[in-house]
Simulated scan of single mutants.
Amino acid sequence: MPANKVKVITVFNFPYGFNDLVSLDLNSSKFEKIVIDLSRMDFIYPSSVIVLAAYTISMATKDITVEVYYPRPNEVKEYLVEIGFRQFCMNNLDTNFNISNYNSTNSLIPIVRLEKERLHEYIQFIKKEINNYSTGKDLSAIEICISEIINNIYDHSNGRAFCFAQYYKKKSEFVFSAYDFGIGIINQVKNFLKDPTPKEPIEYLKWAMTLGNTSHSTQHNAGKGLDNIVSQLNSNNSELTIYANNTRYTSKENTHKFSNNPINHFEGTLIEIKISIDNLPNLELEHIEFDF
């Protein structure tokens, strides 16, 4: 293959390390092969996994050969093999496919491509899995947040939504990321409001974060989804980050910050929560079952 038909893109930790990948115009790309170089990545988070999967699948569906390159065996390669990353990407080109045989001892919830009709089943699966790590903790905040995130994703998704989660045992931290490869919250709100004088992108995200505001909501959240997530996380000093088009929102320890997205030309919306299991309240005694 001629060298001018091959593009090498170096990717490292999200968000800053994804600029070159996200900035690539796949619709007008003349490259026949794109090599994603992970040589600078020494650790991979759920947000990196789902964005990498979404773009790998998107490139492959445009008849671009994709090679994920590792200079040598390392923990990132072993991790991606363990979670079935290659299998997931290769089988999602023409139809939705999710990993069913999943034997990872590290990951809590496998990478999935959401199907709205299986939303209830997916949430029940999540609830079952996170109970393995409950250790007497009340996990209702996790259940509520994931449910709200998934419903919010479907409000703005065009059918290409990805989810992945990880439980870090040493830190007792649960991280859940969901990525909507659709038009994103900013464009969705902008199209809904139809302002004669367009606002700054951050103002549209603030509008979406305001209780009661919704551009297209299911009966499940009716405009309360994002606000509900913030309320749940603030109650136990956990963290929420939203990347929406060219804006970013972070909420941690009751501190809220709107800023520009450090990734240029970011498509869609990525929502990530980080919850310290140790900060969750204990289950009340009547909710704990004994088998003796």
Rank of each mutant, 00 (worst) to 15 (best):
R86L: 13
E143D: 12
V8L: 09
N106E: 15
I146P: 01
M59W: 04
N228I: 11
K62W: 06
E78P: 04
T247F: 09
P281T: 02
G223L: 10
E272T: 12
V189N: 07
S238A: 01
N228Q: 14
D278W: 13
M209I: 02
I50T: 05
H120Y: 10
Y45I: 15
N13S: 09
I288W: 08
M59S: 09
K169G: 07
V81G: 02
D25R: 12
K77I: 04
L38Q: 12
H156C: 05
T241W: 05
L38V: 00
K252E: 06
I130R: 09
V51D: 01
Y204G: 07
N151H: 09
F43S: 14
I150N: 00
Y45T: 13
E148I: 04
E148C: 03
F162A: 05
L21H: 02
T255M: 13
N27Q: 08
I149S: 00
S58Y: 14
F176P: 00
F292R: 10
F290P: 08
Y55D: 02
Y133S: 14
Y55H: 06
E67L: 08
F12C: 05
V49F: 04
D37N: 06
Q188K: 13
D180N: 11
K33L: 10
I146C: 03
H216N: 12
L38S: 07
A3F: 11
I153N: 06
V8M: 07
S104R: 10
S177Y: 00
L26W: 05
L211K: 12
K137F: 05
N132W: 01
K199Q: 15
K257V: 09
N91D: 14
A208L: 06
S177M: 04
V175R: 01
W207Q: 08
N151L: 05
Y204C: 13
N282V: 12
T214E: 14
N254A: 11
I99Y: 00
T241E: 06
P201W: 01
S48A: 03
E203M: 14
E129W: 03
N191F: 05
I263T: 02
D180W: 08
T135C: 12
L283I: 13
P2E: 09
L21E: 05
K128G: 06
N228E: 12
F88D: 04
I142D: 00
N228F: 10
L211T: 03
N19E: 08
A208C: 01
H265W: 09
N92Q: 03
M1L: 15
L193D: 14
H287G: 14
N264A: 12
A141V: 09
K257A: 02
S100Q: 15
Y204V: 12
Y204H: 11
Y102P: 08
S231P: 00
S177F: 02
S147W: 06
D20H: 01
K194V: 13
I150W: 00
T105W: 01
N106H: 05
I50C: 03
F292A: 03
S140K: 09
I9W: 02
I99L: 06
D180T: 04
T61P: 10
R40K: 12
E284Q: 10
K206E: 15
L233P: 01
E117H: 11
Y69V: 04
F164W: 07
A244Q: 11
N264P: 03
N91R: 13
M41C: 14
N261T: 10
